[in-house]
Design a protein around this nucleic acid. Sequence first.
DNA 1: GACTGCATGTAACGAGTTACATGATTGG
DNA 2: CCAATCATGTAACTCGTTACATGCAGTC
Lengths: 240, 240
Amino acid sequence: MSLRHAMLGLLYASPMSGYELVRYFQRLLETIWFAQSSQIYPELRKMEEAGLIAATVAPRGQHATKRIYSLTEEGLATFERWANEVAPYPPERDPVRLKALYAHVASFAAARDQFQAHIVHYQSRLQVWHERVKQIRARTAPITALTLERRPPEEHAAIVAFKAHAVDGLIARAKAEIAWARRGLRLVDELEATRLAGADGAAPDTTPARPRTHADRRDGRGNRPSASRLVDRRRPRAVQ
Amino acid sequence: MSLRHAMLGLLYASPMSGYELVRYFQRLLETIWFAQSSQIYPELRKMEEAGLIAATVAPRGQHATKRIYSLTEEGLATFERWANEVAPYPPERDPVRLKALYAHVASFAAARDQFQAHIVHYQSRLQVWHERVKQIRARTAPITALTLERRPPEEHAAIVAFKAHAVDGLIARAKAEIAWARRGLRLVDELEATRLAGADGAAPDTTPARPRTHADRRDGRGNRPSASRLVDRRRPRAVQ
DNA sequence: GACTGCATGTAACGAGTTACATGATTGG
DNA sequence: CCAATCATGTAACTCGTTACATGCAGTC
């Protein structure tokens, strides 16, 4: 449950209201840990019940109020414990790679669009992360600045260096992704060129860029296979 | 809902039983799209209800049976539509980077452990992926082989190249992650060296490697801040 | 008086996890 | 006959998404 730890991390920097947490998630953290208000407010209440944070009610204008949350001793201890543990690695689930695995089912144009979108996506991320790392090193990033305020000077170098390094990791990943997508674009070009070159005597097609699909195997009703082919299929055994 | 598409992708290669799907997810796909049987079987039923796949009941031994699923025309069309669409990018949620952001809260030893674990994790992934890409290029990877069986020869080069490229992306990412973690280890070394060098006249501590925590700000009851500091805190405004 | 921002949610749903349950079949 | 593997699930739960709901505060 890392949403909780991301929230503890913000409250470690400074006490704040739920709304401020929401804004930090929207503006700062969204490229590291995304969360919406509909998740944050209920989680705040759960954390309060669990004794990790405590709220004080502060006035807002003449009639309204807001709740300011801060870490309790237990919340701080929980956060420190989490920071000292090795993070478990979540199981792999990579939608882009899954699709790339089946790029041959798409048209060359669609494959190109996918790689192009990949580049656009990570280039925009790259901009945000570059900006962020600059702010961290300049110590103007809001959360970094708040943290430095309440930590002794001899820790400042480490705080800045670790935070910058975290974002550097995202930058490195983004660059690797962009390079991969560029190689993908070149691959599509090559494959399309060979396909067109090799298609001399082949039957002409109105959409020559699109590989043929299962539609060519049109044997009887849909694609129900004959029973004999099915009964003793133990292919997974051969795996590895 | 990419589980569904991962499953359609396997059934695109060949009709098979739920159990075979489970095995493929365990042995082949687990490093691209992880899923367990408790998720796969119910999803199969949903897909059947939705008309994407159809089952034939095949005998198993003398008394038992099993259900062999294959794509319907609609399932195939859905899969092709998905393959031709640009994948939406899921919101970022990176537990390792989140923890790295707060590495200064941990001990140097714990930070080192984290980076070390990162290297171990991605090196083991790297092995699997290298093996996989080798099998794909050799056309001995089971799903690839099944796919080639039912696709015309002029597509084979593209099928192999795209699948290999997908796994290459995972390999590139793993290498970038390992390089990042190595830089992290060097960073920890440097920071620890400066901390120890700079700690000449400072008060000696029984655990010198561990940065001090909020425990030093021990003003009154826990860490409830004074009301005056809280009422007009509008820090998020400064963001960006 | 209208608009933007502040502030806090709820309800319904879908995706994924953990743990458990059950029985047939095959090979030694 | 015993173990491994084949085969198929269910139940309870957590996490996250989508869409909606409400009202005060400050400003032009």
